[in-house]
Design a protein around this nucleic acid. Structure first.
Length: 425
RNA sequence: GGAGAGUUGGCCGAGCGGUUUAAGGCGCACGCCUGGAAAGCGUGUUUACCCGAGAGGGUAUCAAGGGUUCGAAUCCCUUACUCUCCGCCA
């Protein structure tokens, strides 16, 4: 959520910047400013009336104490009008505040200056890649779903029986590979100074709002209506919400957390080739990294997170590319996002395996996540960042497809101490 | 799930309708004192919003929301959470 202060002081800038995200903010921005003016006016007169009322009450108390019943009762009669006026203003104020909030919640985050404009993934900007000359699949490489069938690694049909489409069952060495990847990713994060947490896998409405899933993307999460709880779509939600309603001290930056969680996504729509096999699932495993930073350092931190993710992919010896998302492809909450994609050689497709973003103060404003400096008075909004490090299924897909040999799937060296075997067969 | 007891500032803890502008203590910050420190003394110490160029002033905030009252930390209702006991349970 953008702050009303920012909107009020730089309305044109906000409108211009949001055009990069193909969002026409004009009507909302000016309506919000109008509501805010109204809010201030109501607040001012309301407070004045309240101050008057407080004084009167105090005087009445004194009169009673002095035994002047008569005068006290007369004074009491005079308070009725004031009381009504206060009530009236309070009602109006609450209404205006609600309307203002509803407007503010509709505005996406401002994209960073470097974000290219554009509508679709076509307009994303390549940052770098270790796989410049993409080779076509001429040697008959099998897609991962056929490989997993051949070696009986993943049972999609069994998942359908137990739950439904998009909930695969991993078996034998594949189950161990999953566990190995999780352990490997966590160790890498811990090595880089992230503190591990194991958060709840269900969150309440406040948490959903804090990171921006609610109210807009409600349909993306599984909702346990009986208890009004949501299954986490990513560890970002519970981990970032640890810091909801928190005032950090400046010297606590950077806050670094990592968490492994299963992730649950309803992802309605979209069928066919794009969602075959492991490409898109309703439940998948992911290790997430989250940082809370001082606004002055958040972009340096974003780069560090990118390097962290890049180093893991390198250790897995996978072909990858890093792209910066254009305005149209970015999420509602992000100011700058880098996507990591690995190349899956049989499908001949780039698969997104990580998304690393700086949300600046957008989530922090929803979360009321602030920091203060001992030397100064007052608080400021912190910056929040997060990234996948990494999401498992597509990494597994790429490993299967790229490392297939007549003898089986070769496990990258970095993983062998975690898997305990060199080859999947 | 049932019964009972709670939730007060950074922390402990008093207050149960009006000198509470939330006592007292601890912690923290600054000052005095000291050769320096401790102790002692003094001052300050939530957050948000509004008015104001600023100095400063105002309003709200005693778990959250509503109500009663001229006036609520205090009384009433609803919700959340914590603790104790019972039930169930990996």
């Amino acid at each position: 959520m953008l702050t009303i202060q920012q909107i009020e002081t730089q309305p044109e800038m906000v409108i211009e910047r949001l055009k990069i995200k193909n969002f026409d903010a004009k009507a909302i921005v000016y309506k919000a400013i109008e509501y805010n003016q109204e809010r201030k006016k109501l607040k001012t007169t309301g407070d004045q009336h309240q101050a008057e009322m407080n004084q009167l009450s105090k005087a009445i108390g004194q009169l009673f104490k002095d035994g002047k019943q008569q005068e006290a009762n007369e004074a009491k009669d005079k308070t009725a009008d004031l009381k009504n006026a206060i009530k009236q203003i309070q009602t109006e104020l609450a209404e205006v505040e609600k309307e203002l909030h509803e407007l503010l919640v509709q505005l996406p985050n401002l994209p960073h200056e470097s974000v290219p404009s554009g509508k679709t993934a076509e307009d994303n900007k390549l940052i770098r890649t270790n796989y410049e000359n993409v080779e076509p699949n001429t040697s008959g490489l099998l897609p991962h779903w056929e490989l997993s069938n051949q070696y009986q690694l993943i049972d999609f049909e069994l998942g359908v029986k137990l739950t439904g489409a998009g909930f695969p069952v991993y078996k034998g060495k594949m189950a161990r590979l999953q566990r190995a990847l999780i352990q490997f990713f966590l160790d890498e994060a811990i090595e880089n100074g992230y503190e591990e947490v194991i958060p709840p896998l269900m969150v309440n409405e406040d948490s959903g709002f804090g990171t921006g899933q609610l109210p807009d993307k409600e349909g993306q999460m599984y909702h346990a209506t009986e208890d009004n709880l949501y299954l986490v779509p990513t560890a970002e939600v519970p981990v970032t919400n640890i810091y909801r309603d928190v005032i950090l001290n400046k010297n606590q930056f950077p806050v670094k957390n990592t968490a492994y969680t299963p992730c649950f996504r309803r992802e309605a729509g979209s069928y066919g080739k794009d969602v075959r096999g492991l490409n898109r699932l309703h439940q998948f495993d992911k290790v997430e990294i989250v940082q809370i930073e001082h606004p002055e350092h958040s972009y340096q931190t974003l780069e560090k997170m990118v390097l962290h993710v890049e180093s893991i992919i390198n250790k897995l010896e996978l072909p990858y590319r890093i792209i910066q998302l254009c305005g149209g492809d970015m999420s509602f909450t992000s100011a700058l996002t880098y996507d990591f994609e690995v190349y899956s050689k049989a499908q001949e497709k780039w698969l997104e395996v990580s998304s690393v973003s700086n949300f600046e103060a957008f989530q922090a404003n929803r979360l009321k996540l602030r920091f203060k400096d001992d030397k100064e008075k007052g608080t400021h909004l912190a910056h929040t960042l997060n990234g996948s490090a990494l999401a498992l299924p597509r990494i597994v897909a790429a490993l299967l497809e790229n490392n297939q040999t007549p003898d089986g799937i070769v496990i990258p060296k970095a993983l062998r101490k975690y898997t305990g075997f060199d080859i999947l067969n």
